Computed example of a mutant assay.
Amino acid sequence: MSIRLKHDLWVIVADGEKALFLRNEGDTKYPNLQVVQEMEQENPATREQGTDKPGRYAEGPRSAIEETDWHRLGKERFADDIADRLYKLAHRGDFDEIVLIAPPQVLGEMRQKLHKEVCDKVKAEIPKTLTNHTVFEIEKLLQAA
């Protein structure tokens, strides 16, 4: 897969807790990704969010109710927030093309939530976790892709 980092291409790098909205201020030969916006969400592990032991069904002593995965729900909500933000930006005409980079699970969540107006502008999806990389490292990885 070849990704052309043309001028004004937007790159969204996300995971379940952080999203970077980057725009290429440079061109295909000399990309220059700049941070347009950052989103963050506090999403501690489920064990830190739950308060009680799992509930039990009335039928018997060993019929525990599965504990809610608050961490996973937080990631799903954050994917919703990213999709909403992208829709507003697309509707305003802020970008013509975007590349989505996120871990496979988050990418799947985002894909389900994206409005058609945004989906039509997605030029590539990369199933990787790059939120802890510098913008420079992201540029280099995209050029190599």
Results as ranks from 00 to 15, higher is better:
Pro127Trp: 09
Asp69Ile: 02
Val36Thr: 03
Lys121Glu: 02
Ala124Leu: 04
Glu67Cys: 00
Arg111Cys: 00
Gly93Ser: 13
Thr68Pro: 00
Lys123Phe: 03
Gly16Asn: 02
Ile65Ala: 13
Glu117Arg: 13
Trp70Met: 12
Gly16Cys: 04
Ala144Leu: 06
Pro103Leu: 13
Ile82Glu: 03
Thr129Leu: 07
Pro103Trp: 10
His115Tyr: 08
Ala124Thr: 03
Lys53Asp: 12
Tyr57Leu: 14
Glu109Tyr: 15
Arg77Glu: 10
Ala90Phe: 06
Val99Asn: 06
His7Pro: 09
Ile138Leu: 06
Val35His: 02
Ala102Ile: 08
Ala64His: 10
Asp8Arg: 12
Lys88His: 11
Ala144Tyr: 01
Arg23Cys: 07
Glu97Gln: 15
Phe21Ser: 04
Ala79Asp: 03
Pro127Met: 09
Asp94Thr: 05
Leu22Lys: 05
Ala19Asn: 02
Leu107Pro: 05
Arg62Asn: 12
Glu48Phe: 04
Asp8Ile: 01
Glu117Asn: 11
Trp10Phe: 05
Ile3Asp: 04
His133Trp: 09
Gln37Lys: 13
Gly16Pro: 01
Lys53His: 08
Trp70His: 15
Trp70Pro: 10
Pro103Gln: 11
Leu9Met: 09
Ile65Ser: 08
Pro54Ala: 11
Val13Pro: 02
Glu109Ser: 13
Tyr57Thr: 12
Val36Phe: 04
Ile101Ser: 08
Ile82Arg: 06
Leu73Val: 01
Arg72Pro: 00
